[in-house]
Design a protein around this nucleic acid. Sequence first.
DNA 1: GTCAGTGCAAACTTTTTGCAACTAC
DNA 2: GTAGTTGCAAAAAGTTTGCACTGAC
Lengths: 156, 156
Amino acid sequence: MENKNVKETVRKIFTEYLESNGHRKTPERFAILDTIYSINGHFDIDMLYGLMANQENFRVSRATLYNTIILLMDAKLVIKHLFGNSSQYEKSFNIETHHHLICTQCGKVKEVQNEELKDAIANTRLNRFQMSHYSLYIYGICSRCLWAKRRKKTNK
Amino acid sequence: MENKNVKETVRKIFTEYLESNGHRKTPERFAILDTIYSINGHFDIDMLYGLMANQENFRVSRATLYNTIILLMDAKLVIKHLFGNSSQYEKSFNIETHHHLICTQCGKVKEVQNEELKDAIANTRLNRFQMSHYSLYIYGICSRCLWAKRRKKTNK
DNA sequence: GTCAGTGCAAACTTTTTGCAACTAC
DNA sequence: GTAGTTGCAAAAAGTTTGCACTGAC
């Protein structure tokens, strides 16, 4: 699905979500959705605020960003990650499921795809629990830091 | 391994860790380790602070708790989780690997064991990355909230 | 004796909240 | 017109930092 199409589709999904939950369709909300779906990869509220402050049409307050992102998560259009210090978010419609490798040394986050893992998790039977989505964070040391560590050891 | 034995073992591991990294073996650090290994399940800094404030021997500052927990994570005796608002921690030595079911409605966290899943993740080959541990968070709706939701829908 | 570690309080960051003004319905 | 939303600023919550004092080595 090409980008323009995705944006239209999520706008439609969000509209339906807002209507069926008795929320208002404010221009702020759609501007936020649009901006989020222009971002590739993770973002946090501060980055989103910065992006929208510089934007042609819209400037929204942080409070509105926090409010709206809750709605977007509820509408399953955004998911929230917790690594590092602040909450990180990510668009979730039309996005391939992926897992996260997090370096405990430098904090870098890398996304990986792994079909077998994906299947194993998706097919897990859970008692009395209706899964909606999941996050797998794999911690360890990235190649870069591994080299650095080895070099340091050798020099001792 | 029984509890007393575990405590002794982790004290030994921590001692070695501190020595080989040129850190001092302060009584605060061992008191914190001991307290943590008396807790079953998750805890946050505030809870740990509360527990130690009421304790016979030791009262430590929050700053020291934050400092020490970093050492304990580095020594692989504690792992950090990020759900809800604040960082949650958990002892990690001699603990069965488990996964977390998180209810997006009420925020309740439940631990589950699943051998197949465990194997699938442990056997995953990762390029240029040395895995040390991982966290799997499965989001969804718990049975309790599912009932509540159904009831609400029916009443409409 | 020295310097890493501790406690305390202040600072900082991120998120939440209260309230007046606004606007989608 | 009314109630849901917004922006702003203040407050709250969690974590980090600076500094004087302490105690492990």
